[in-house]
């Protein structure tokens, strides 16, 4: 349907076309055509992105009834209610710890993987399939695999530990180690993915530069600090903000592995939002949390785009 729109304002192709100057022929399209083509997709973005953004902000100041309907203006009452929930503050703290640990480990592991694999990128398919299998599978499947692996006593992890004399391991049964498992799963799932970007960045370093470095600075230390790192910095900044965005959005692994427990030790903000909205039907605090999440997630992904722009990104 949309392709016909393109020809909409276009005059009939004329048999003797070449005689006519091109600019005049294209003019009708330039006047109306772009808008006709852009109307539907732009309307979809307005309807499903722009309007919800405004609504999310507005709704957080409304009083909401038991069924989510607006019952009046509430000012900051939703925010007050949210911040008075102990679980919200716990979730916020958990998320900070989780995101910080996940991002740092993820970027470091991705860097190491990129170093290790860039020498072998064309080489062994089984290796690539095994390293990148977590990248192509859903987080739910990955979490299921880990759940199966970590189940106390019956899981292989426990059996392996048992074989070396460590009994009663129950990583998901204690708040600290359960959060640690979530971090490890995040790194396992996403570090290879981010390594791909770092590898692409490494490959973008011109061959001549690499060879010059190899002869002039065999230990590589100076080269790393003065040449490689600055060249990769925008890519690393992009990967870091993306990792941060992904970690704040985490919910799948919590849903499968811990349901926020034990003792709320793995309740992350996204999971808490799901709980507030779709389990507690606590619409007021949910609206306030939505607005806060919208602001922070959008800031993060905006920052990652700016990181990209510094690399090679053109707005216009």
């Amino acid at each position: 349907m949309s392709t016909t729109v393109v020809s909409e304002a276009e005059p009939e192709p004329q048999p003797g076309g070449p005689a006519q100057p091109a600019p005049r022929r294209r003019r009708p399209f330039t006047v109306l055509g772009p808008y006709a083509v852009l109307a539907l997709p732009a309307a979809l973005v307005v309807g499903f992105v722009a309007i919800p953004i405004v609504q999310t902000a507005v709704r957080s100041f409304d009083l909401l009834g038991v069924r989510g309907q607006v019952t009046g203006f509430g000012g900051l009452s939703n925010y007050r209610a949210l911040f008075s929930q102990p679980l919200f503050l716990i979730s916020l703290k958990n998320t900070l710890v989780y995101a910080a640990a996940s991002v740092v480990l993820c970027v470091v592991v991705a860097w190491l993987l990129a170093q290790l694999l860039s020498a072998r990128f064309g080489a062994s398919r089984p290796l690539l399939v095994s390293v990148f299998s977590p990248t192509v599978m859903p987080m739910i499947a990955a979490a299921n695999i880990w759940l199966y692996f970590l189940a106390p006593r019956i899981g292989l992890f426990g059996q392996l530990l048992g074989a070396i004399g460590v009994h009663g391991s129950n990583l998901l049964g204690e708040p600290g180690s359960a959060l640690g498992v979530l971090v490890a799963l995040f790194v396992w799932k996403f570090a290879p993915y981010f390594a791909l970007f770092i590898m692409a960045g490494l490959q973008a370093i011109p061959q001549s530069v690499r060879e010059a470095l190899r002869t002039e600075d065999p230990t590589g230390r100076y080269a790393f600090r003065r040449v490689v790192l600055p060249m990769l910095a925008p890519m690393l900044a992009f990967v870091t903000t993306m990792a941060l965005l992904y970690s704040v959005e985490t919910i799948d692994s919590v849903y499968v592995l811990t349901q926020g427990g034990p003792n709320n030790g793995t309740s992350l903000v996204m999971y808490y939002l799901y709980q507030l909205g779709f389990n507690y039907f606590s619409w007021g605090p949910a609206a306030a949390l939505s607005a806060l999440l919208m602001a922070s997630l959008s800031t993060l992904s905006g920052l990652s785009l700016i990181g990209l722009e510094r690399r090679a990104f053109h707005w216009q």
Binding site: A39, L44, G47, F48, I51, R67, G68, Q69
Partner: peptide, 21 residues
């Protein structure tokens, strides 16, 4: 096409404004 777009915009605005379940 224009009608569809217009209708859609109205629809979107409508539910944006009165989406209270």
């Amino acid at each position: 096409v224009l009608a569809a777009v217009g209708a859609f915009a109205l629809l979107a605005a409508g539910c944006g404004g009165a989406a209270a379940p």
